[in-house]
Design a protein around this nucleic acid. Sequence first.
DNA 1: TTGAAAGCGCTAACAC
DNA 2: GTGTTAGCGCTTTCAA
Lengths: 322, 322
Amino acid sequence: MFNITTIYDIAKKTGFSKSTISRVTSGNGYVSSEKRQIILNAMQELNYTPNQVAKNLRNCKTQTIGFLSADYFPLMGEFINIFNSMAASYNYNTTVFFTKNAKNEQKILESLANHLLDAAFILTRINEWDLINSYTQFAPIATWQRVKNTNIYSNYVDHYPIYFKILEKLYNKGFERVGHVFSLERNENTKARIQAIKDFSLQHQASDHSYQLFYGQQSHAGQDVAQKWLAQKNRPTAMIFYSDYVAAQFISALRLNQVKVPEDCFVIGSDDSEIARLMNIPTVDFCFRSQAKNGFIYLYNQLNQKNLPFVPQVPKFIYQKI
Amino acid sequence: MFNITTIYDIAKKTGFSKSTISRVTSGNGYVSSEKRQIILNAMQELNYTPNQVAKNLRNCKTQTIGFLSADYFPLMGEFINIFNSMAASYNYNTTVFFTKNAKNEQKILESLANHLLDAAFILTRINEWDLINSYTQFAPIATWQRVKNTNIYSNYVDHYPIYFKILEKLYNKGFERVGHVFSLERNENTKARIQAIKDFSLQHQASDHSYQLFYGQQSHAGQDVAQKWLAQKNRPTAMIFYSDYVAAQFISALRLNQVKVPEDCFVIGSDDSEIARLMNIPTVDFCFRSQAKNGFIYLYNQLNQKNLPFVPQVPKFIYQKI
DNA sequence: TTGAAAGCGCTAACAC
DNA sequence: GTGTTAGCGCTTTCAA
């Protein structure tokens, strides 16, 4: 159905050998500028581009990195943007996968053994890290999540100190009942946040942090929180979320119910994402942009035995107005 | 550095030929269930998965579709989500490219000739359609944009009738000065919108639609519009945008300047995106979700000589409150 | 039902 | 500088 001209056609047309053609297309080896020109012309004329798949097979690499996420959420788009642009500037492509379920995630990880993917970046995962870790025998894997005791590269940011500071800040502003919406409890930074609350509560008996919810996925999480919050007798006057998006859903749902934000409920998100900016939600920059870059840098270094330096990650409050 | 076991290893271990191994992995051809079992066990034991790149070379296809966008904007994430999930369910991978500039876009389109990509979907483009069209000689290309006189599949929605209706609605509600923020003028649906304004103005001399702005990219477009709007003596009391995101930027910027939305300026977006929902912005569903699906369906049908039916596309007002 | 052999398009020793 | 050759890992005739 579609066009196919190969290195062999160019060889035949110009009378040179395939190797010589290969030398000019790949740039490795010597070719007299005179013959090079003839070959270039022939390529032009026959509209030839080298078959990249054949190159990949020959070179045992595809210059392609898998970008895995369990499902879609808005920050993912922003993350892909950074990661992909970084990768592109080093000549790597990014194939995006929504893993959806444990079995499918494993199937996709197999692509590391398949030689289809040179490496993988994991945004959100489904299987246990140990299982995922077993694929590092085939290719390097990186994530932005906090993971320990594996060969998976993780340039995480510890949420504990900042979370503790937020609690202090809220306390000093007079918020006594503070609600918390977390990601899954199995995540290390969820544990860190809970630990911060525990430690803080010991010092400040008056403050109540018992209102806690956990969510495995972001879609409609905020709406669910809103329903629960509205049904509550003794409503928390401040709520801290593990994601700007979920915070935004929450705010949106509250406003539809004539609840005023931030007056009736002060909301803090996480991630410093576009939504937080647009809706003017106080948030915390946990440096996902640097994390995306560093994730790629690690993979690149592994793949090419290089030592590109990592970019710094300094988390920051984006307390738009507190 | 990393593991490699090939079909040859399995052949050697089991004593069968490569062809027989191939028959069990690919599922084509006959193998006695007895021998099949032995081979399966050996594969298991040696942790073997067929090299997908070799398969791709042999089969002259990669089951991979390129998803091209000039740059990132929030709707893109939602679009990828739909497109990618659709593709995955038919066993196609999606590689995302930010084309960034004309030259790079062309380089990426070359991948269709390279055999790296089986097909391409174009979200936003840089080069002229004619240039892009020339790549349909290598592989099928689809887009959601309105494009004519090419081999590029386009399941666009005509903005004219809905835009006209919006103008009527605004007019009936008493809005006399209405501002318009468009995408680039070269786009067919920008032309359609302008035509709708022209035709409407002929019938309604009183209404003023002279306030018009054009943007090639979304990042900071809304902030720019806001600056201009604020500087305006005779401010439009309603503004219609070509994108929810740009509308959201505009609203956000106005609110930072103590302008009330929708009281001081009634804003309408386009796309029925997540942001419109979260910020409660009136918008128009131009069916990007169906467009994403239909785009894939076209490519799939082309690639596999199939006839999967397209899904319906019925644009709808999402006038949250007018 | 299985194996031998050719070949997908390209690259890299190696020889000249 | 350039050509010959072997081979990357897989599939698919063809023959047995």
